[in-house]
Simulated assay, not measured.
Amino acid sequence: MAFLNPRVLAISRHASLTVASSLLLLDLAVILFGVFMRYLVGGAPIWTDELARFLIIGSVLLGAGAVWIEGGHMRVALIESLLPPRLCRILNLYQWLLTLSLAVAAAIVSYRYALSVSMFTSQGLGISRTWPMLSLPIGFALLAWHALCHGPAPLKTLTDDPT
Rank of each mutant, 00 (worst) to 15 (best):
S22A: 15
P6N: 09
F3I: 03
V60Y: 10
V30P: 08
T159V: 13
G63P: 04
A107M: 04
G34K: 09
V8M: 12
R75D: 11
Y94W: 14
I108A: 10
L142Y: 02
L136A: 08
L25R: 02
A147K: 01
W96Y: 05
S81K: 14
M74F: 09
L9G: 10
H146S: 01
M133Y: 13
L40K: 04
A66Y: 00
I11F: 11
V76T: 13
I57C: 12
R75P: 00
N5H: 08
M133E: 13
R129T: 07
G63I: 05
A77I: 06
T121G: 08
R89I: 03
D160F: 08
T99P: 00
G42K: 13
A105E: 06
I56L: 08
F3N: 09
A114H: 07
A153N: 11
V19S: 05
T130Q: 13
G43S: 15
V67E: 09
Q95E: 08
I69A: 01
L98N: 05
H73C: 00
R89S: 11
L28F: 14
A141C: 03
L62P: 07
A147Q: 00
S22Y: 08
E80Y: 03
N92I: 03
Y111F: 15
I46M: 14
G43W: 05
L125V: 12
T130S: 13
W131K: 11
F33W: 15
P45K: 09
S135N: 12
P152C: 09
E80G: 10
Y113N: 07
S22D: 04
S116I: 06
M37T: 12
I138A: 11
H150D: 01
C149K: 01
P154T: 03
I138N: 01
G43V: 08
R89M: 10
L40D: 12
L98R: 01
I46Y: 11
M74Y: 07
I57A: 13
L24I: 07
L82A: 13
L32F: 15
S128F: 05
L26H: 06
L62Q: 09
L136G: 03
